[in-house]
Amino acid sequence: MKRKSSSSPFLSGIRDGIPIALGYFAVSFTLGIAARKAGLNAPLAGLMSAAMVASAGEFAALGVIEASAPYLEMILTSLVINLRYLLLSCSLSQKFGPETRFFHRFFVGFFVTDEIAGISFAREGHLEPAYVYGAGTISVPAWVAGTVLGVLVGAILPPFLSSALGVALYGMFLAIIIPPARKEKFLAVLVAVSMLCSFAFAYIPGIRTLSSGMRIILITVLLSALAAVVKPRTEEA
């Protein structure tokens, strides 16, 4: 998906992490606004974002806090909302070179967000942990800063601005999945079918009552398995 530049993996990670950082800043800003509503102050909200780095996961966690729900509910909610990271991490585990040390696998886990995982998959060849650290070094602080700022000044951000910034991450998702789909027709079909399913699942009675995180997991498991049967990959991981 992407050329491997001559610069160090860490610097490449920082370079590819810049758009992620900008998108994160915008999205976490709205997260900060939600955190304020849930009664969190700026340092606490910043702590939350630094510890979780998960958009849907954090929004869900705020909902649990706001409701003063039982602790068990926090565990179960977090488990379900964030379960797609399990799939992404399984997938990413195959991207490491065989010599990758245990402690790198341990620390890379912290940075498995949709976006950082996305650019990591797009990296040519084996994944260097330094690349992930580079992307995380620039994007996680932006995520935390946006959250804190959202708590502090969220109320004064003009709505048109937060509306425009809110789509930055979707733009990135498209830039990750569309270029390979352009080269390979099967991937293009898979992307289109995934979007259609996701659309349908949002309306089908019964299924639509599932949380959006649960629907994503269902679609991912069903369609990835189907795709693996229809077109097994023999050449690459």
Binding site: P180, L190, R215, A228
Partner: peptide, 12 residues
């Protein structure tokens, strides 16, 4: 299966 996971997840 794991190769296709990111495409499906991000598209959905």
């Amino acid at each position: 299966f794991l190769f296709y996971v990111p495409y499906v997840t991000l598209a959905a």
